[in-house]
Amino acid sequence: MSDLKSVLVLAGGLSSEREVSLRSGSHVTQALRRAGIEAQQRDADSTLLRDLAEDPPSVVLPLLHGAAGEDGTIKEILELTGVPYVGAPPAACRAAFDKPTAKAAFSRAGLLTPTAVTLPQQAFHDLGAAALTTHVLDRLGLPLFVKPRAGGSALGVSFVETAEQLPLALVSALGYHPEVLIEQSIQGTEIAVAVADIDGEPTALPAVEIDTEGLYDYNARYTAGATTFHSPARLDARIAAEAGRVAVAAHRALGLRHLSRTDAIVTPGGEVHILETNVAPGMTRTSTYPIALEAAGYDFAAFLRGLATQAISTR
């Protein structure tokens, strides 16, 4: 604990998730200060490297969402500086951020994840969108989810119930990434399972059940009162334990450390299908990670202090 003198919270960035990142950063910085930790929040800009060299903090807590923040870039930069940081190393971030790569890792680990195909925009242009989407529908059926290949906060994500809705969904997703992931829709209960390294071991926190009208989109995630969260989730004890096991297995399969959040669907039969695993979970007041911490009986500030200390000791 004596090595933890100051924490630098990185928040903001230039991705489409900038506003969420700033809200996460503010919530975390205030909590650390309440715990008596010297905490400063700043953006990742052209003066960051100079400031890290001139006045390095004890540890950096990156809360940058989206590209650069979750794709391994900021971790590569922090590795170059030698300053300890909270979170997964660069290679693990890259694997988790890229949805098809993560899904392949889940499958290799024997975990369930919805069947999907990933296609670049160029393929629709070169082969003909109508012909290609016909083959996609023949393979995957309906309903579907269409997502950008990488990214978070459900930006660019559409739920497709009819063939006529697919072209517009593709356009929406391609607005955020030049490749799209088209995924079978699994019906069931949507949950988020936070994982934290506690005493050196990844441990699942109580699953949070997401109860919202329609798609759990950007507004449903970050507008207070738009979504009801049940924590712990209203699951049979055996299924809740399985959800925790799956989240820890996903954390391990991707080589993550310190913290992660796995989003999943629990079918009526009790199967847990992973949608994705996030290396930089949102930490806003409406985010599921702080909700899970509270359900598990952890003080938010004390937990953050513990993560920071752990990052220093495992540098």
Rank of each mutant, 00 (worst) to 15 (best):
residue 100 P to S: 06
residue 165 Q to D: 07
residue 245 R to S: 13
residue 93 C to S: 14
residue 101 T to R: 13
residue 83 V to A: 05
residue 159 F to W: 13
residue 11 A to K: 10
residue 258 H to A: 12
residue 147 K to E: 10
residue 195 V to M: 01
residue 307 L to V: 08
residue 121 Q to I: 06
residue 235 L to E: 06
residue 117 V to I: 12
residue 269 G to R: 15
residue 151 G to V: 04
residue 135 H to N: 07
residue 57 P to M: 04
residue 100 P to R: 08
residue 20 V to D: 11
residue 284 T to P: 06
residue 193 V to Y: 01
residue 83 V to C: 04
residue 254 L to P: 00
residue 27 H to D: 04
residue 282 G to C: 05
residue 165 Q to R: 14
residue 17 E to V: 09
residue 168 L to V: 00
residue 96 A to E: 01
residue 135 H to R: 15
residue 164 E to V: 07
residue 155 L to M: 13
residue 188 G to T: 02
residue 105 A to Y: 10
residue 49 L to T: 07
residue 86 V to N: 00
residue 3 D to C: 01
residue 237 A to L: 15
residue 102 A to F: 02
residue 266 V to L: 09
residue 66 G to R: 03
residue 260 S to C: 03
residue 108 R to W: 03
residue 13 G to Q: 12
residue 123 A to P: 09
residue 224 A to Y: 07
residue 125 H to Q: 15
residue 80 L to H: 12
residue 147 K to W: 10
residue 96 A to H: 01
residue 6 S to F: 09
residue 240 A to P: 10
residue 262 T to M: 11
residue 109 A to K: 01
residue 297 G to H: 00
residue 34 R to E: 12
residue 51 D to A: 09
residue 197 D to A: 10
residue 201 E to S: 13
residue 256 L to G: 00
residue 124 F to E: 07
residue 31 A to I: 04
residue 52 L to Y: 04
residue 147 K to P: 09
residue 257 R to S: 13
residue 19 E to G: 12
residue 169 A to Q: 05
residue 309 T to D: 05
residue 63 L to I: 08
residue 71 D to N: 08
residue 79 E to W: 08
residue 112 L to R: 08
residue 16 S to N: 15
residue 257 R to Y: 10
residue 203 T to L: 01
residue 9 V to A: 08
residue 277 T to W: 07
residue 135 H to A: 13
residue 37 I to G: 02
residue 122 Q to L: 11
residue 222 Y to T: 02
residue 7 V to C: 02
residue 210 I to T: 05
residue 213 E to Y: 09
residue 46 S to K: 03
residue 42 R to Y: 07
residue 55 D to W: 07
residue 124 F to L: 14
residue 240 A to Y: 08
residue 187 Q to M: 13
residue 8 L to M: 10
residue 240 A to V: 09
residue 231 S to D: 06
residue 299 D to F: 03
residue 56 P to Q: 07
residue 60 V to K: 03
residue 140 L to G: 03
residue 235 L to Q: 03
residue 187 Q to A: 15
residue 257 R to P: 14
residue 224 A to R: 11
residue 287 S to A: 09
residue 146 V to T: 02
residue 161 E to P: 00
residue 251 H to I: 12
residue 254 L to M: 11
residue 26 S to D: 13
residue 240 A to S: 14
residue 76 E to L: 14
residue 304 L to P: 07
residue 74 I to G: 04
residue 55 D to R: 15
residue 49 L to E: 03
residue 73 T to I: 07
residue 72 G to H: 08
residue 51 D to F: 01
residue 194 A to K: 00
residue 172 S to P: 00
residue 267 T to W: 06
residue 294 E to P: 10
residue 254 L to E: 02
residue 159 F to G: 08
residue 75 K to V: 15
residue 214 G to A: 03
residue 39 A to M: 10
residue 268 P to V: 12
residue 232 P to S: 01
residue 199 D to Y: 08
residue 59 V to R: 04
